[in-house]
């Protein structure tokens, strides 16, 4: 009788939970690692490397409010200093010193050097993409969620992204970016994790062009600071007031 009771109790014991988090949760946690989900500013140094050419350097100061508002100030090179970019959702404005007024531009225009506007302006994937967990991969002794991200809107920089996120700490590890045609545009590795604003965050992104051997852009993030950014800053009429 005791044995029978024990067996019945065993049957009704809670089964240990082995369910995985949803793709959305994985992506949101990965976004939180990439950037604090608060108003902040960060400096981005971009080094563009082309085979056989002298590396080109640029420096930007980036202000991010929420998931969809960004201001990019160009600090270097000197000839581009004073060029500001405002991105709200998928709308984009540029302020050029020699014109002195904000101009509406499309996301296609490349105004901030060799990287796409979205590479700097967007630090969150979850607002722009619908995620799906493709599989879990094991390599170098660690487990990674492999996410497929499909663009919610055709105006985003990349149509499809494959993102590897470390399972135990949600650290983005690497990504592949694809065009609508299915062609791979670039790959990215998230490197140099450092303690920034209370969390380990990647401070270097290496964007490789798989079609041109040796061609890459290195984005280095520094001095990430939480700061109050009023709504008025993120209006096209405020662009002329940015101080350099």
């Amino acid at each position: 009788m005791k044995i029978a009771l024990f067996i019945v109790m065993l049957l009704f014991l809670p089964v240990p939970c082995i369910a995985h988090p949803s793709a959305e949760e994985v992506l949101e946690k990965a976004d939180e690692v990439r950037s604090p989900q608060l108003d902040y500013k960060v400096y981005v140094d971009v080094t563009s490397i082309r085979p056989g050419k002298e590396p080109k350097k640029a420096k930007y100061e980036v202000f991010i409010k929420g998931k969809d508002k960004t201001i990019i100030k160009t600090l270097e090179p000197s000839m581009d200093r004073g060029t500001s970019l405002l991105m709200i959702d998928y709308d984009l404005w540029v302020f050029l010193q020699n014109i002195s007024k904000p101009l509406r531009i499309s996301l296609q225009q490349r105004l901030i050097g060799d990287v796409a506007n979205g590479d700097i302006a967007r630090a969150n994937f979850s607002g722009d993409y619908n995620p799906k967990i493709l599989r879990i991969e094991n390599f170098t002794g660690k487990e990674y969620y492999v996410l497929e991200l499909l663009a919610k809107d055709e105006r985003v920089t990349y149509h499809r992204i494959i993102l590897w996120v470390q399972k135990d700490n949600s650290h983005p590890f690497k990504a592949e970016f694809y065009a609508v045609s299915g062609r791979i545009l670039k790959t990215c590795s998230y490197e140099n994790y450092r303690q920034v604003l209370g969390s380990l965050r990647p401070t270097r992104l290496v964007l490789d062009d798989p079609l041109v051997r040796g061609q890459k852009s290195i984005l280095e993030y520094s001095d990430m600071t939480l700061t109050q950014l009023p709504e008025k800053y993120f209006t096209k009429d405020y662009l002329k007031k940015l101080k350099y």
Binding site: K41, E61, F63, I71, K73, L75, S78, R81, D223, T227, Q228, L229, P230, Y233, K241, L242, K243, Y244
Partner: peptide
């Protein structure tokens, strides 16, 4: 908030 911190004493452009 929106001013560059590399704006130094003799920072004339």
């Amino acid at each position: 908030a929106l001013e560059s911190e590399d704006n130094h004493f003799f920072d004339i452009h």
